[in-house]
Amino acid sequence: MMNTIPGLPTGTVYGALLNFRREYALWEPRMKEAPYRAPPQAPVLYIKTANTFTASGNAIALPPGVNEVEVAASLGLVAGEGGTVAGALLYNDVSIPHESFYRPPVRFRNVDGFLGVGSAVLPLGDLEALPTLVLELRVNGVLRQRTALADLVRDVATLWTDVAAFQSMRPGDVMMVGTDCLEDGSRPRVRAGDAVDITAPGFASLVNHFVTEAA
């Protein structure tokens, strides 16, 4: 059943792994190890399932036993008719801290509510306007990370083209371009009581606060 809340995805949400240069460089030495023994030749994707969608302004609950989670700003491309990009939206990709980026565990990424979704899709007529975009992530009003799309391994247009080479993007599907890491390879972490605000020029702010899941 499709979501009817404005802004929430109506199709499948995909995310790209290892698509920022800093994180790719940190992982590149391990790409030569078993079982792959070589860098990936195509985009490495994962799925955020529908149970994760949380509209901007709503709370995201930490499940029992989890004291903190990682948060990450991302830009999502919303598919239109005929495999085109209809627009873009800000996302807060939440996960329980984990090490694997080759096969991201579903139980760490797809917890209920673990994808903050911006409130309004920005129509796009030209993907070439996006390479200079910078996303800012603040926790409790303090700037914790700036994510520049100029640092993508595959820029927005290339990622969309490369994914379309092996799968169709149906109207309403979303392709998140990836999330950057901090200098040490980690991502900003938050606890219950914290608020996260993600902004980018031209986009409505994405705000979520974090709470402890009710018993």
Rank of each mutant, 00 (worst) to 15 (best):
P39F: 11
F53Q: 09
R103M: 11
V177M: 01
L122M: 01
L45W: 04
G82P: 01
E70P: 03
R144F: 10
L124C: 02
L17W: 12
A38P: 03
V207W: 04
A73T: 06
V177A: 01
D197Q: 14
A55S: 11
E33H: 13
N140P: 08
A195C: 10
A59S: 10
E183T: 12
A42L: 14
V142Q: 14
R144A: 14
A50H: 13
P201N: 11
T54K: 03
T10M: 06
C181Q: 09
G65T: 09
A86S: 09
V71W: 04
L127D: 00
R154Y: 12
S100K: 11
D93P: 05
V177R: 01
P123W: 00
A42Q: 15
V106C: 11
A79C: 02
G82W: 01
F53S: 07
R144C: 13
K48N: 08
D126V: 03
A129P: 00
F101D: 08
A148W: 12
A16D: 02
A204F: 04
I198T: 06
F166V: 11
T158E: 13
P63Y: 08
P40H: 10
V69K: 02
P104L: 07
E70Y: 03
I198D: 04
L206N: 07
A59D: 10
R154I: 02
Q41C: 11
L90K: 02
Y46W: 13
D180G: 14
G57M: 06
G118E: 03
L149I: 05
G185T: 08
T10E: 08
P40K: 10
R146F: 08
E99D: 14
I198Y: 04
L17V: 14
E68I: 00
L127A: 00
N19F: 04
G80I: 00
T84V: 01
V190S: 05
G185Y: 07
V211A: 09
L45S: 06
P105N: 08
V196F: 03
R21T: 15
R146W: 04
